[in-house]
């Protein structure tokens, strides 16, 4: 009987631990949001976070979008040739970039760059007692460290997604015109004609959700980092993995919400 129950008990314990972790993250996120409505606010920390998360992520998001747009144009042209539909390249590149690839790849690249950086920075602050020092200096770490980063990421990632969308479409245009023989004006006309406002808006909303996830996970795992270099390393790794998985899960849920009703 015990041999039968042991794996079931282990599975139950794992599920309970996962649910408890989800609950802790949810409470952490909720507490962060409540600080949005309770002063004091740290404007300088917010501005610094905006530069770190938004401005300095532009190159990596831009390059990712450029190459993805180009590869997407080649794939759609090659796949579309099987049923004589090569002309859909501009519209599919545009819709694919703004609805899906722009926000998801942008979110994942920001997760790699920003979540890791936030988790490592806050984790190091924790193990070197800088978080305790903040408290003794009458400064709430959630207000000083977490809220500025989460707010900055929630606002900056949609902008990054918008820029990434434009660069991705441009990447498709370059390949379409130079490698696949599309007429320049026709490519641009097809892109504009088939793109709807909701395609763009839904991508930006996804970007905001992904930005919130990216910074929240970095802050949460940083604040709960274990001791020493190993603890900070583990916190950083877990934060990036959790943020990436959550971005992909949230992407599916938001796509269901936005496009299946």
């Amino acid at each position: 009987m015990n041999a039968l129950l042991t794996p079931i008990a282990a599975l139950g314990a794992t599920v309970l631990a996962m649910l408890a972790a989800v609950g802790r993250v949810a409470l952490f996120a909720f507490e962060t949001v409540t600080h949005l409505f309770r002063p004091p606010f740290y404007g300088r920390e917010f501005a610094t976070a905006l530069v770190q998360i938004g401005w300095l992520s532009l190159p990596v998001v831009g390059l990712t979008a450029l190459f993805t747009g180009g590869a997407l144009a080649l794939q759609i042209y090659s796949g579309g040739a099987r049923f004589n539909a090569e002309e859909v390249v501009p519209s599919i590149v545009a819709i694919g970039m703004v609805r899906e690839l722009g926000p998801v790849l942008g979110g994942l690249m920001v997760a790699a760059r920003v979540t890791s950086s936030i988790a490592a920075e806050i984790g190091t602050m924790k193990v070197t007692e800088q978080i305790d020092a903040l408290v003794t200096l009458s400064t709430n770490p959630m207000k000083y460290l977490t809220l500025p980063r989460v707010l900055a990421a929630t606002l900056a990632v949609p902008v990054l997604v918008a820029v990434g969308d434009a660069i991705g479409i441009f990447g498709g245009y370059i390949i379409g015109v130079t490698r696949l023989g599309f007429n320049e004006a026709a490519y641009l006309k097809n892109t504009v004609d088939f793109l709807e406002m909701w395609d763009v808006t839904s991508g930006l909303l996804k970007g905001a959700a992904f930005g919130f996830i990216v910074a929240t996970m970095g802050c949460y795992y940083g604040m709960n980092s274990g001791r020493g270099a190993q603890g900070v390393g583990r916190a950083t790794k877990t934060a990036v993995v959790a943020a990436s998985v959550m971005i992909l899960a949230a992407n599916y849920l938001l796509t269901e919400l936005f496009f299946t009703s």
Binding site: M125, T128, E129, Q130, D132, A133, V135, T136, L137, S138
Partner: peptide, 17 residues
Amino acid sequence: DAFLARFGMLFQGGALF
């Protein structure tokens, strides 16, 4: 806040930002 304003603390490693 009022309570902590009465305290100063020197941490073991300095804990400078």
